[in-house]
């Protein structure tokens, strides 16, 4: 006789741990001081992106005021923000509401 296993569901503790591990966004905000080629260069350096991808995010920052660069755990997102801020970019860590 076939046995139907219950659908796995995350307990509150597991759900909260999951949110902490991958629920933070690294956001770069527009500013009127950092030069566009410099911002592109920094994205390439920090994330290892090719120029095309780095330019796409740079243009998004410039035209829309901000760009979500990556979604990571708290520790990884914090490290990225630290790196970006060491290049004087206006980067912040935001909790992913989505």
């Amino acid at each position: 006789m076939p046995v139907t296993l219950p659908t796995p569901t995350a307990t509150p503790r597991e759900a909260s741990r999951e949110a902490l591990e991958s629920g933070y966004l690294v956001v770069c905000w527009n500013d009127p001081v950092n030069l566009m080629p410099y911002v592109t260069h920094v994205f390439q350096q920090v994330f290892g992106w090719d120029r095309k991808r780095a330019e796409k995010h740079m243009m998004e920052v410039h035209e829309k005021g901000k760009s979500v660069l990556v979604r990571e755990s708290f520790e990884k997102a914090e490290a990225h923000v630290h790196q970006l801020q060491s290049y004087s970019l206006q980067a912040t860590l935001e909790k992913d509401a989505g």
């Binding site: 956001v27 905000w29 914090e78 923000v81 801020q85 206006q90 912040t92 860590l93 935001e94 909790k95």
Partner: peptide, 8 residues
Amino acid sequence: PPPITRGV
């Protein structure tokens, strides 16, 4: 010193 977040 730069802010780390603009969120809540």
